[in-house]
């Protein structure tokens, strides 16, 4: 039980820091906005084509935003030896992982919904009842992505050429979540609810797998020297 209690406390700490400073979410949202506009410009003013590409556009924007959020949260932890302090105090250090997954999931969930709203306006997407399913897609894909990001960020925290390494180490591992997210939202946008549900299920399985791996391996990854 103490694992979850500690994790929630840590997640609240992350979220409170973010609410006060607003740097991670703000810069990530700005990055996502730029990505949306750039991809729109690259495709050209062809409404049909843009609409069919919408899920891919949203997800590419989200991946870049996710990298920004991960980087910022890791910086907060590693500054002032804050992480070492937490490491020494906690009885079950897996709570560091769970806490980070919770705070990252919340950030990614909100980002995903914000990007969908922006994409709906910019790409002129028709709003359908199936859109509600995007909330479920966002929930599970955020959990899956957050667990991978939390674990890999810990692995590369002190690596050389960190800023280059994070995307190289992280993006390939996020591909399954990316595929599930794109396929689920494409299905929902096309009105194929059952396909959307299947892909959402795939995202849920991925989330379960990565959380499981994270619980087992995080302590080895994050231990300060």
């Amino acid at each position: 039980m103490s694992l979850l209690v500690d994790a929630v406390v840590l997640a609240r700490k992350d979220i409170r820091v973010e609410l006060r400073a607003g740097q991670a979410f703000g810069s990530a949202a700005a990055l996502a906005g730029i990505a949306l506009i750039l991809i729109g410009l690259a495709v050209g003013p062809q409404p049909e084509r843009l609409r069919s590409l919408a899920p891919a556009v949203v997800w590419i924007a989200l991946l870049y935003a996710a990298l920004a959020v991960a980087e910022r949260l890791e910086q907060i932890d590693r500054s002032d030896e804050a992480f070492t302090g937490l490491w020494l105090v906690l009885t079950d250090r897996r709570s560091l992982f769970v806490g980070r997954v919770i705070s990252l999931s919340v950030a990614l969930f909100l980002l995903q919904l914000a990007i969908w709203v922006a994409a709906t306006i910019l790409l002129d997407l028709p709003v359908r009842p199936e859109y509600a399913g995007l909330v479920l897609v966002a929930t599970f894909t955020s959990l899956a992505a957050a667990s991978v990001i939390a674990l890999v960020s810990a692995v590369v925290a002190d690596a050389d050429r960190r800023s280059l390494l994070v995307p190289v180490a992280l993006l390939p591992l996020l591909v399954p979540t990316f595929i599930a997210g794109v396929q689920a939202s494409t299905a929902l946008l096309d009105g194929r609810s059952s396909d959307g549900l299947l892909w959402t299920g795939a995202a849920a399985v991925e989330a379960g797998l990565f959380i499981g791996v994270g619980l087992l391996a995080y302590e080895s990854a994050a231990r300060p020297d």
Binding site: V148, L151, V152, A154, V155, V156, D158, A159, D160, R161, R162, L165, V168, A169, P172, L173, V175, P176, L209, F210, V213, L216, A217, S220, A221, R223, D225
Partner: peptide
């Protein structure tokens, strides 16, 4: 990415430990 992660970690034992974590996550794919 696994090999690049290894290259970017200096200390021998730290490299082994972190690469092992990455190797496990990579295999889930």
């Amino acid at each position: 990415g696994y090999l690049l992660v290894r290259q970017s970690l200096g200390d021998r034992y730290r490299r082994a430990r972190l690469a092992a974590v990455y190797g496990i996550v990579a295999f889930v794919n």
